[in-house]
Write a protein that binds this DNA or RNA. Structure first.
Lengths: 239, 239
DNA sequence: AGGCTTATGGTTTTTATGACTACAAGTTTA
DNA sequence: TAAACTTGTAGTCATAAAAACCATAAGCCT
């Protein structure tokens, strides 16, 4: 008996060219107006129809898993070349009702100003949700999302990855708000400023904000060189 | 055409009861005489014959992946109920020469005094290797091992997991040597002592070392309650 | 008893942190 | 045009922690 497999992620008949028991799911974080957001997709077809979930898909036989995650991200949202890191594998036997499927979680950080997200052909809709206003999610996607948040909170204190969520040029207050939002704490402006400037990661762009109804703040961007070093070596950012 | 799958991990014909494209590999760390060690197995049968690799195996259809890792660890070494945590999935398309198989890496920390490792039936030999005297490993196991070391170094600074490598009662110097070995740094005894005692994690056992040819040191063990709290909440141990 | 090794207790200097104050630079409003 | 308001930026001070030391205590060995 030849089995006919239906790909529930896409509703398509599953191609023989993908691995049958492993998928990839991505948590895509964005930051806007002081809020941390996550990109979710609502599926147009298949049994997931009408429900929100993490963007994801199958791994092709000939591609590596990081590669697959990059491809999927691009297919689903048009995004390329961004911060993308594996979380871990999720594999409870009952996590997926239609069969035993293990999923490998990834999380991505993007600068929302730079990308205009468009839903790919597999999803009817893609939408940003604030992390404290999430809809109900399919399968174990809440667990994956929860884990990704923990991971983000951990990583943001070990490496300056937060920058990936900000535009090219940003003010120190924006940066502080980002940390406050991710870590769920309140911080002191002067102290934050001193702490960050001390580590020499920021470059003064010699520009100021425009069109703001108050004193304009200096714009900074981060120094690629030092960013790389700090990311490799790890730093320590306790608040 | 019916495929006959040979389980390269064990040499057995693969049972239908396991997932066909995912395996688990464990990095098992031990600590003895100031050296960090890793348990490797040499396979007696199958194409891996005579080569050293990480202990691992297949995931059963009805078990979760953490569960599978625990079972495998027990089958291969007799060890149960120890610190075991997932690293991540490794899935380069060419990592395994006989087919496309993704492996989920785990790492375990054990107290060597408590367990006498015996090779399970699938491996002819199990042996401890100092991490700086490793043999050549099969497949991508060097990469997995390398990653697990990085992870261990990161985690040991965030949570007091190092205790899992020590005997029930230990001296402050043993503890310091453990940190020195893992992090590859040299530390100052008085400062280390102060720092560790300050966080109230250690319990004075009111005993001293015996049969040592110098002044005997106090024995400590760690406080389970505070250990749990610190592990959950995360601490920060910068040296 | 004297010498050796390791444990443990202090001291001092430097640096980071947290809480808070003050003022500067623009916008808005009256 | 001046006052009020908002946000940015700089500085101060008390406290805590870290790093680099020195000193002594406790036990073994010859």
């Amino acid at each position: 008996m030849k089995k006919t497999l239906i790909n529930d992620e896409t509703g398509e008949r599953k191609k023989a060219s993908v691995l049958s028991s492993v998928t990839i799911d991505c948590v895509i974080f964005g930051f806007q107006d002081g809020n941390l957001e996550v990109l979710l997709v609502k599926h147009a077809i298949g049994i997931r129809k009408g429900k929100w979930g993490l963007p994801g898909g199958w791994i092709k036989k000939e591609e590596g898993i990081d590669e697959a995650a990059e491809r999927l991200l691009h297919e689903l949202t048009g995004i390329k070349d961004i911060f993308l890191e594996q979380l871990k594998a999720f594999g409870e036997p009952d996590r997926f009702p239609m069969g035993r499927i293990i999923t490998i979680g990834y999380y991505a950080l993007i600068n929302k100003e730079k990308y205009d997200i468009k839903a790919g052909y597999t999803a009817s809709e893609a939408k940003w949700f604030q992390i404290n206003k999430l809809p109900e999610l399919i399968y174990d996607h809440e667990e994956i999302l929860e884990y990704s948040l923990q991971q983000l909170r951990r990583r943001v204190r070990q490496a300056p990855i937060g920058f990936n969520l900000l535009p090219e040029k940003f003010t120190l207050l924006q940066l502080m708000k980002l940390y406050e939002e991710i870590l769920g704490t309140e911080m002191d402006k002067p102290n934050f400023r001193r702490k960050f400037l001390r580590m020499k990661l920021l470059v003064d762009r010699k520009e100021k904000q425009k069109d703001v109804s108050h004193r304009a703040a200096k714009l900074y961007s981060f120094d690629d060189e030092i960013y790389r070093k700090l990311t490799e070596k790890g730093f320590n950012f306790e608040f």
